[in-house]
């Protein structure tokens, strides 16, 4: 069973997967595509990295397999869909809050104007 509190800060791969799954249930390759889209092509998650991260996130109970899936005629039955757990939502919110704090501090120091 996963730990009660998700580790913060999250690794980039875990953060991107959580961020991708925040939009809804997705299967493996959809997650990878969403990650590439969210990062504007800067992050290309390979299959090995993706499923390694999924394994650890399942163990930490950040995500789980989704029970609902598209109709069999619309999709391959062998695909597995994943969704965020409550703990995953909490971890993502905590990470986004951390980013927001960093951005606030950067603004107060006028660091963003230089970027």
């Amino acid at each position: 069973m996963g730990s009660e509190r998700a580790p913060v800060p999250l690794t980039p791969a875990v953060f991107h997967i959580l961020f991708a799954l925040a939009g809804g249930d997705k299967h493996g390759y959809e997650i990878a595509k969403q990650v590439t889209e969210d990062s504007q092509g800067r992050v290309n998650m390979g299959t090995g990295t993706l499923y390694g991260s999924i394994k650890r996130m399942l163990a930490d109970a950040l995500i789980e397999e989704a029970g609902q899936r598209p109709a069999p005629e619309l999709d391959d039955e062998r695909r597995r869909y994943y969704r965020l757990t409550e703990q995953g939502h909490r971890a993502l919110r905590a990470e986004l809050a951390r980013f927001a704090r960093v951005v606030t501090i950067a603004r107060s120091r006028d660091l963003l104007a230089q970027v």
Binding site: H27, Y29, G48, Y51, D76, R78
Partner: peptide, 19 residues
């Protein structure tokens, strides 16, 4: 790892390849 995700990895790879 192979038992749990092998099939999915191959399928995701196929999607990635054709894409």
């Amino acid at each position: 790892h192979r038992r749990a995700f092998g099939q999915q990895m191959v399928q995701a790879f196929g999607d990635h390849y054709s894409d």
